[in-house]
Amino acid sequence: MIPRIENDGLTLDFEEVIEPSKNYKLIPDKNRCFGFVDEIEAMKQAIFLMLSVERYDHIIYSWNFGAEFKDLFGKPVSFVASEAKRRIREALIQDDRINEVDSFVVTTHKNKVHIQYTAHTIYGEITAEKGVEY
Rank of each mutant, 00 (worst) to 15 (best):
V77G: 07
F73Q: 08
K85N: 10
N7W: 10
K44A: 00
H120C: 05
M43Y: 00
H114V: 02
I59S: 13
F65K: 02
S52D: 04
G74F: 06
R97D: 06
A46C: 08
C33L: 12
G35E: 08
E16R: 10
N31K: 10
E41G: 00
K70F: 06
D8R: 08
K112Q: 04
F69T: 05
N111W: 06
I2Q: 14
E129Q: 11
E133P: 08
Y134Q: 01
L26P: 01
R89L: 06
E16K: 13
R4S: 15
N111L: 11
T107Q: 07
A119L: 01
G35Q: 06
D96R: 09
F69W: 09
V17R: 11
I115A: 01
D96T: 15
E133K: 15
T108W: 04
N7T: 09
E125D: 08
S82G: 11
H58L: 06
I2N: 08
I40Y: 02
P28G: 02
M1K: 04
D8V: 07
L51F: 04
T121W: 02
L72I: 06
N31G: 12
T121I: 03
E83S: 08
V106T: 15
N7R: 10
K85P: 07
L26S: 06
S62C: 04
M1P: 05
Y24M: 13
E90R: 13
M50N: 02
G9F: 03
K25Q: 09
D38K: 12
D95M: 01
Y123T: 07
S62P: 03
P76K: 10
F73A: 10
A81T: 04
M1C: 05
I60H: 11
M43H: 05
V101E: 08
V113T: 14
N31H: 07
I60C: 09
F73H: 12
V101F: 06
N99F: 11
S103D: 15
S103P: 00
K85R: 13
E68N: 08
E133Q: 13
A42F: 04
I122Q: 07
R55K: 10
I60T: 14
K85S: 12
R87S: 11
P3Q: 07
S21L: 07
K112A: 05
G124E: 03
V77Y: 13
S78V: 13
A46Q: 03
K25F: 03
Q94R: 09
W63I: 12
G35F: 03
S103G: 13
K44F: 00
I59C: 08
K44Q: 15
